[in-house]
Simulated scan of single mutants.
Amino acid sequence: MDKNAKIYVAGHRGLVGSAILRALENQGFTNLVTRTSQELDLLDYQKTAQFFAEEKPDYVFLAAAKVGGIQANNTYRADFLYENLMIQNNVIHQAYVNNVKKLLFLGSSCIYPKMAPQPLKEDSLLTGTLEPTNEPYAIAKIAGIKMCDAYRSQYNSNFISAMPTNMYGPNDNYDLNNSHVLPALLRKFHEAKEQNHPEVVVWGTGTPLREFLHSDDLADACIFLMQNYDDFGHVNVGIGEDISIKDLALLIKKIVGYEGNLVWDTSKPDGTPRKLMDVSKINDMGWKAKIGLEEGIRDVYQKKLKN
């Protein structure tokens, strides 16, 4: 990518999109195009088509999506399927129509079957049944991967896909009803400390294992892939290590400085027992994550306190 190539970051105010925008700016890219959802509704085919026809971006990072944790995914099943399909269908098709040089589509580790062998390899896609709670979201993301491959096959479009593990970082969602586990725990422990609550209740048993990647690492990986990967099939992006939800909770409790008790609500779902990415494909290309989990969470928490 030339430093003054026109680059459209779709979803630039979200956790991932904002990190990609920061990384591009830090690396000296100057011709960056963004639109808020109020300025451009990517669910609207006509408006998306008009935007692409007028702006003619050279490169597209597709980080716009409807996202949430277990509760949101399971409650708003139709919304998660419909909105994600519409966003990616509109953007990917218009990238083809308007001769975008390259597009990177961002998905999620939930594309893999619930009981897929660990760590999750790229070729485990479509080999088994999905985790029921986030199946609609996963199906939308699988469709996005296959759409990129189909446009590459039929039209020779240079469209690629990256599948990150669980994300955290600046501009995360801290709404307790529809956020992911790490920001939800940060908020719970922070509020319990501020309000002197004697205990914090956490969903599930604490036994599931999860991997967490800082959004700045993902942004770095996305730019790396945009410049170094041109092929069919998605690429896993992760750190290659996991941690139990119990140990994550204890780590966040320590970082926040909360001294009360931790209580597990085992009536609530755990989700997939383990989700660890096999990241040998991207590591073999020459990219590795740099930000350790404790360092990353401390940084996020300090920035959140300042704001």
Rank of each mutant, 00 (worst) to 15 (best):
V300Y: 01
K101Q: 08
L182P: 07
L276N: 00
F212E: 05
G204T: 04
R298T: 08
T127N: 15
G204N: 08
L182H: 05
A78R: 13
L293D: 01
Y301H: 02
L43P: 12
F29L: 03
A116G: 00
Y155D: 03
L104R: 06
A65W: 10
D44E: 10
N173P: 06
K114C: 04
N98Q: 03
D299H: 01
G286N: 15
P132Y: 10
L62Q: 15
K306H: 15
K102G: 07
P117C: 08
L104P: 04
P132N: 09
P113R: 02
E241W: 00
N178R: 13
L130H: 14
I87N: 07
V201Y: 01
Q50K: 15
V60R: 02
Y258C: 02
N99D: 09
A140M: 02
A289Q: 03
L40N: 08
L106Y: 10
T207L: 12
G169R: 04
L103H: 10
P273T: 15
Y137E: 03
E241G: 00
A49H: 02
E83W: 14
F159D: 03
K288A: 04
D247S: 06
L125D: 12
K246R: 14
G107K: 08
N171H: 04
L213E: 07
E191Q: 10
E83V: 15
V237M: 07
V256W: 00
N31I: 00
L130V: 15
P183K: 07
L81V: 02
V16E: 05
M226K: 00
L81Q: 06
N134T: 07
S161R: 14
I145N: 08
D230P: 12
T129R: 09
Y82V: 15
V201T: 07
N283Y: 12
Y112E: 07
A10I: 11
V97Q: 12
I111D: 13
L81A: 06
H197I: 09
S267C: 05
C148G: 05
E295G: 00
R13G: 14
L250F: 02
I243D: 02
F159G: 01
A64H: 13
Y76H: 07
V201L: 03
Q302G: 03
G257P: 02
V91M: 11
S109L: 08
P273C: 14
K288F: 01
A138I: 11
N236W: 11
N26P: 13
T48M: 08
R210M: 01
Q27L: 14
K3N: 03
L182D: 04
M226W: 01
I291F: 00
K141Q: 13
R152H: 11
E83M: 15
E135P: 12
Y151H: 07
D79K: 06
D299N: 09
F80E: 03
L225E: 04
P170D: 12
C148A: 15
L248V: 08
Q38W: 14
S109A: 07
E54Q: 12
D123K: 14
Y301G: 00
M285R: 09
A138R: 10
S215E: 00
Y137A: 05
V100M: 11
K114F: 10
E211Y: 01
K188F: 11
Q94L: 09
L218M: 06
F212G: 03
K3Q: 05
